[in-house]
Write a protein that binds this DNA or RNA. Structure first.
Length: 480
RNA sequence: GACCCCUUCGUCUAUUGGUUAGGACUCAAGAUUUUCAUUCUUGCAAGAGGGGUUCAAUUCCCCUAGGGGUCGCCA
C-alpha cells in the first residue's frame, strides 16, 4: 500500500482559524490513523499579503492544540524547504518546461486590460475568462516584448472541449467541462507562482498521497489534474472537505463568529474541547459516542465517515463540551491552566488548598476557564451589597443568624466541612430559623450573593478569619 | 449569471430499501440538592417539494426549489 503523506498548507496571512483547524485536524488524524506523515507547508506566494510573525503564530497554535507535524518549517524532513517562497526556482523551472511543451504561454496583459475585458464579458453575460489575446503573439513579438522589459505572466493553456473528471474520496466521481476553466496564471510577473502551480509542484515533489483540503478548491481541481497530466506526473487522491458555515449559513467569517482559534483559547476554551468539537463538525464515528481525546480520534478517524454537507458552527454545543472537559479533566490540570488568569486578577492564590477547593467548586458551575476566575472572585474579595440586600441583613432574624455564627465559628477545632455543617445544624435547632431565612443572610454576608456553593464549602474555602470578618461587617452594633 | 457541490429535529449527526427514523446540544418539565450548579429521568422536535423505480423508499433515479462554493498576477 502507498505510504500516506498529507499536508496542511495554509497561507500565513493571519491566525489559525476554525476552518483551517478543521482541515489541519482531519489531515493530522488521517495521517496518524494510517501511520503516515503529517506535513506543514507554508504557502506564502502572495507577497502583498505577507504578515510578519504569522508562520510562527500558526505553528504555536497548532502545537497548543496538540497537532504537531512530522515535517515542516523548523522540522526539516527530506522534502524541504517547506516554505514556498524558498522554492521559487522549482516552480520557475516547471513553468519553463510547460512553456517549452506548449502547455503554457506568456501573457503581457496589464491588470487594467484584464479588468476591462472581464467587465465587458460580464455585461454580455458571458463566462468570464481570459480571452487569449496573448496566445496570438508571434515568437518574435514575444521576444521583443521581453527584451523591452515588459512585465508578463505565464498562463496555462486549457484545452478546448475536454471533460475533466476525477474521483473524490468524499464526493465520488466529479466531472467538469474544460470550458469552465480559465487559462489560469501559473507564474506571476514578480516571478512567484500562483497557488495552482505551487501546490501541484510541491505535492508532487513532497510525494503527497492525499490532498485533503476545503471544498472551495473543488472547482479548480480540473486545472490541477490537467497540470499533473502536462507534467507527466501521477496525481494524488482528492479529498474535498465540506465547509464550516456561520449560523446564517454564510461562509464562516470573522464578522459573525469569532473564528480565531487563539481567541477561543484566550477566552477560556480548552484545547480538548475545541479539538473534540471541531472533529465532530463533518465527521462522526459509527456509534453514538461523542467524547474523544485527540489520541482516541487518531484511532477511530476515517475519511469514509466524513460528511458531504456543510456544517454550521454552533457555539452552544462547544460550550457544553467545554464544561464537560472542565469537570472531567484532573483538578490539578484545571488549576494549572487557571493560574495565570487568577494572577492576572491579582488574587492571592498562595494557599494551594484554598485555591484547589475554589477551583473544585467553581468548575461545577462554569463552562469556561475565564468563568471560573470570575466565579471565584467571591472567595478572594468581599462583594458589595445593594440597599435591598442590606435591608435583608438588617432584619432581626438575619442578625440572629449572623450573631450565632460569629459566636460559634471560633469554637470549631477542626476547620473542615463536616464540623462546619454541625454548627449549621446546631444553629438551625437553637435559633428555630430554617430554610431561606437561615441561608440567605449567611450567603449575603459571606459572598454577597443569594446563591452560591454549599455553605460548609464556602466557609471552608474562605477560612475562619475572613469568614468572621465578613459576617461581622453586617452585624449591627445594638445586636452585639 | 454560468459551472460544481450539498439537502434527516433549531444545530451537529446516526440510520445507505422494510426502524415506533436513533443519539448529542439547545429548550421545557420532573427528581436529587437549603440556594445556584452538577447529575439523573422524561418531553418537544426531522429525512425540502414533485415525479418515478420497487411488494416496499429517508435510503436508488429524474425534475424543481433552497443553501453553499468557484469564476483574481488571493490562497
Amino acid at each position: 500500500m502507498q505510504q500516506v503523506r498529507v499536508r496542511f498548507a495554509p497561507s500565513p496571512t493571519g491566525f489559525l482559524h476554525i476552518g483551517g483547524l478543521r482541515t489541519a485536524l482531519y489531515n493530522y488524524l488521517f495521517a496518524r490513523k494510517e501511520k503516515g506523515t503529517f506535513i506543514l507547508r507554508i504557502e506564502d506566494t502572495d507577497q502583498s499579503r505577507i504578515v510578519p510573525g504569522a508562520i510562527e503564530n500558526l505553528i504555536v497554535s497548532l502545537h497548543n492544540l496538540g497537532l504537531d507535524f512530522d515535517e515542516g518549517p523548523g522540522k526539516e524532513g527530506s522534502f524541504g524547504p517547506y516554505i514556498q517562497s524558498q522554492r521559487l526556482n522549482l516552480y520557475q523551472k516547471q513553468a519553463q518546461i510547460l512553456l517549452e511543451k506548449g502547455f503554457a504561454y506568456p501573457c503581457f496583459c496589464s491588470s487594467e486590460t484584464l479588468t476591462n475585458m472581464r467587465k465587458e464579458q460580464q455585461e454580455k453575460g458571458e463566462f468570464v475568462k481570459y480571452d487569449r489575446r496573448c496566445l496570438a503573439l508571434s515568437k518574435a513579438e514575444i521576444e521583443r516584448k521581453i527584451a523591452a522589459g515588459e512585465k508578463y505572466v505565464i498562463r496555462l493553456k486549457i484545452p478546448d472541449n475536454r471533460k475533466f473528471s476525477f474521483f473524490d474520496l468524499i464526493r465520488g466521481e466529479v466531472e467538469m467541462d474544460s470550458s469552465q476553466s480559465d487559462d489560469q496564471v501559473l507564474l506571476k510577473s514578480d516571478g512567484f507562482p500562483t497557488y495552482h502551480l505551487a501546490s501541484v509542484v510541491d505535492d508532487h515533489f513532497m510525494q503527497i498521497s492525499h490532498i485533503i483540503r476545503g471544498e472551495e478548491w473543488l472547482s479548480s481541481t480540473p486545472k490541477h489534474i490537467f497540470l499533473y497530466e502536462c507534467l507527466g506526473w501521477e496525481a494524488p487522491k482528492w479529498v474535498h472537505l465540506p465547509l464550516i458555515l456561520n449560523p446564517d449559513r454564510t461562509k464562516l467569517s470573522k464578522r459573525m463568529n469569532d473564528v480565531s482559534v487563539d481567541n477561543y483559547l484566550a477566552n477560556g476554551y480548552l484545547r480538548e474541547a475545541i479539538v473534540n468539537f471541531v472533529a465532530l463538525l463533518g465527521w462522526h464515528p459509527a456509534d453514538d459516542r461523542e467524547l474523544f481525546t485527540l489520541e482516541e480520534l487518531c484511532d477511530v478517524f476515517s475519511l469514509k465517515r466524513v460528511n458531504k454537507a456543510n456544517a454550521i458552527f454552533d457555539l452552544a454545543k462547544l460550550d457544553w463540551m467545554n464544561g464537560h472537559y472542565l469537570r472531567s479533566l484532573p483538578l490539578e490540570e484545571i488549576a494549572l491552566r487557571c493560574k495565570p488568569l487568577f494572577l492576572e486578577k491579582g488574587y492571592d492564590i498562595s494557599d494551594p488548598e484554598k485555591y484547589h477547593l475554589s477551583i473544585a467548586v467553581a468548575r461545577e458551575r462554569c463552562s469556561l476557564l475565564n468563568e471560573i476566575v470570575d466565579y471565584c472572585k467571591m472567595f478572594y474579595q468581599p462583594d458589595t451589597l445593594t440597599e435591598e440586600e442590606e435591608k435583608i441583613l438588617a432584619t432581626p432574624e438575619a442578625q440572629k443568624v449572623l450573631a450565632w455564627f460569629v459566636q460559634k465559628l471560633p469554637t470549631i477545632t477542626n476547620w473542615e466541612t463536616e464540623e462546619i455543617q454541625n454548627i449549621i445544624n446546631a444553629g438551625i435547632t437553637a435559633l428555630g430559623i430554617k430554610g431561606k431565612a437561615f441561608y440567605i443572610p449567611l450567603r449575603l454576608a459571606l459572598i454577597g450573593k443569594m446563591h452560591g456553593p454549599e455553605l460548609p464549602s464556602t466557609f471552608a474555602i474562605i477560612g475562619l478569619e475572613e469568614s468572621l470578618q465578613r459576617l461581622k461587617c453586617y452585624l449591627l452594633k445594638n445586636e452585639e
